[in-house]
Amino acid sequence: MNATATDTHEQHDSHAHGLSDATAIKIALILGTMTALEVSTYFVDFGAFFMPVLMVLMVVKFLTVVSYFMHLKFEHQMFKFLFYTGLGLALFVYFVALATFKFFS
């Protein structure tokens, strides 16, 4: 990773992640719809699908904002590493900790 290589990479990136306003609005609309769907679970009984639907929507929304609004999808590998390491470690340690409290059973 010498300086020149990274510089060119960076220029390449800044071209790629130029998220246009129109796309941004579309993504926001999708996010809004998903939120509406989430809220609807409060009023409509989804039965067995309740938990999975909410969980999937939550994860999809999370990743959409991270990937597009925060344009991590188009960023340097190093940034992905930094953020997803933190996220992954958080998920790992807290899942294990909650599991030892028999939270999931």
Binding site: A3, T6, D7, H9, E10, E75, H76, M78, F79
Partner: peptide, 8 residues
């Protein structure tokens, strides 16, 4: 955002 962040 660039990966190179100089001390300036």
């Amino acid at each position: 955002m660039a990966i190179i962040e100089r001390p300036t």
